[in-house]
Design a protein around this nucleic acid. Sequence first.
DNA 1: CCCGCGTCAAGAGCACTGCTCTCGAATTTG
DNA 2: CAAATTCGAGAGCAGTGCTCTTGACGCGGG
Lengths: 229, 229
Amino acid sequence: MPASSIRARVRAEMIDEIKAVARRHLSTDGANLSLRAVARDMGMVSSAIYRYFPSRDELLTALIIEAYDALGDAVAAADAGRDRLDLRGRWHAACRAARDWALAHPAEYALLYGSPVPGYAAPDATVEPAQRPPVTLVGILRDGLAAGRLDPPAEDLPEPVREDLAVIGAALFPGLPESLLARGMAGWTHLFGLISFELFGRLNRAVPHRDEYFDHQTALMADLIGLPA
Amino acid sequence: MPASSIRARVRAEMIDEIKAVARRHLSTDGANLSLRAVARDMGMVSSAIYRYFPSRDELLTALIIEAYDALGDAVAAADAGRDRLDLRGRWHAACRAARDWALAHPAEYALLYGSPVPGYAAPDATVEPAQRPPVTLVGILRDGLAAGRLDPPAEDLPEPVREDLAVIGAALFPGLPESLLARGMAGWTHLFGLISFELFGRLNRAVPHRDEYFDHQTALMADLIGLPA
DNA sequence: CCCGCGTCAAGAGCACTGCTCTCGAATTTG
DNA sequence: CAAATTCGAGAGCAGTGCTCTTGACGCGGG
């Protein structure tokens, strides 16, 4: 049925263009993007947008999912570009990729990891893409353990913590000791804080040498995890 | 001049009431608080608010500064409540105090540490209050070093990093080795990420035992810093 | 004491927002 | 070819921050 396909194709192109224009607005106006402004940029009237997105939040959700995917791809690609056994190299590459993506797309990063929009609840469709960056990071630990290059820390976790981490591990990293997973999550948590601090201007006048500071901070977390030099 | 003082006192009370009502709205409606709604709650018309605050952003700034102070006080009080030599106890108490405050005032925390409001630039008056929580945290390291209970890590920092940290240290923590300051900042960065993850719903279904997870994560950073058990 | 200055709240109004509904026009479908 | 679907435009609603004008009130100096 080529007839209906024409319409479908035009419609898909319209959706893509709306998202592209919205992304552009996002980078200048921040999270409060205006449907009317997007419509104006496309030579349309605001109500026409509603033919393609039922609400502004749905548009935001689409942008969020695409942003998660882009970030996840960037991190995964950087990790994949290193030798599987170069654990520290993979760690640094993945961390830097996340930071580079965030610096290149600050508004989208803020959309993902900034304060949640008051009325907006992230739909379930976003949780899988959101997991990809930390999964890539902890995957480095999994590989290191499997290759015998990384020893699980000799540490007894409090039982409730071990329990929670066991559930997470069973779903995403079967066989990974909980103590190692805990340190991987600490690394991910720290990485998020590090990028957010830089992006949200919290070390504006304090730290001029951003790149070096970032690398050293992530190296500290690699030490905590036990990644071999 | 008691006459003009009456006016001044009424005016100060009005300002306080506006801030109180705005804070209440903040906790329910998030960062996009409405001047008109605040005015309605006070039985006033929106334009009357402008007698006391020249713009919505100025009101936000006032709330931000008060929030920074409240958080800083909470952290400092928790730290001060422990024996000066119980470094790990102080660390945990300070971290927990920050988290407790954030959980009790999620909207204000988001205002401080969430994505920056697009048009809004934090005025200089906010930087000093913003420094107080991390200063309290790193102060624990300074005391530990002075008491001989904490050894600076034997580590050579990259020169640019050492340089930046030396400037920060000279202003706030004279005599503190840069390597230790770096770990203190890692701890602060991680703490911020940890609280944000919990508050912004990123470990909603994943980690049911929040308290224990939080304590264990901060303990990991205490390990990295080298705080003695 | 009381008049005038300064402060204050109110109201109207501007430009903007997300969103809904209706109405023609174009296009696809049977 | 006729019917059904899709689409864009426009008007309109309720809300926003903010400005300006108007009138009332309290205060201090003459």
